[in-house]
């Protein structure tokens, strides 16, 4: 079983990212859960969402304490939130950042493996909006293979209809531009 924690800000669509991955994994015949950090949400405040994906039935309702994967949608968040908290030793942190791996390690003190992409730039160019939730899924795919691209694209189409194409393009670009270190 793989556990994912997504950090974003209220309104950035972190819950939607979680939903897309979970529904795609379920469509592939796997088991999955996606859920928000329970409680009231404020636009702009740091929030988290969670995913579990497994080949077997998932029998837990615990919160995610020790994620395998952490995905951060907003470049400013690692300054405010301990994004790597509780991450497994072999875990990976996927960041939306313009920084290099060395800069990330130095500035935020993250020791885990890293996957990095400038998702804000890609989202602005491809979607015209600095909303990175679908773009960052490209980085997630590249870094982890937690779900297949076809299933994820299908989930995007179901969720976004006409807008899916642009999101797919952004996702594809992020996939190609993600650096793993």
């Amino acid at each position: 079983m793989k556990e994912v924690r997504i950090h974003g800000r209220g309104g950035q669509g972190g819950v939607t990212s979680a939903e897309l991955v979970a529904t795609a994994a379920i469509a592939e015949g796997k088991y999955a859960q996606a859920f928000p950090s329970f409680g009231p949400e404020r636009r702009g405040a740091p929030v988290a969402a969670f995913i579990r994906v497994s080949d077997k039935q998932i029998r837990t309702r615990e919160k995610v304490y020790h994620p395998d994967i952490v995905m951060v949608l907003d470049p400013s968040l690692p300054r405010l939130v301990k994004v790597a908290e509780g991450i497994k030793d072999d875990g990976i942190v996927i960041l939306n950042t313009e920084l290099t791996a060395d800069q990330v390690r130095e500035t935020f003190g993250i020791n885990s493996r890293l996957a990095m992409v400038d998702a804000t730039k890609i989202a602005l160019e491809e979607l015209g909006l600095p909303i990175t939730n679908t773009t960052m899924l490209g980085a997630l795919l590249k870094a982890t293979g937690i779900v297949g691209k076809d299933a994820l694209f299908e989930a995007l189409e179901k969720r976004f209809g006409r807008l899916a194409e642009k999101n797919k393009a952004a996702l594809e670009r992020a996939y190609n531009e993600t650096v793993i270190a």
């Binding site: 979970a22 088991y31 999955a32 859960q33 996606a34 859920f35 329970f38």
Partner: peptide, 12 residues
């Protein structure tokens, strides 16, 4: 059904 723990979870 448990609030949030079930009501707000996406699952198969």
């Amino acid at each position: 059904i448990d609030g949030f723990t079930l009501s707000h979870v996406i699952e198969p």
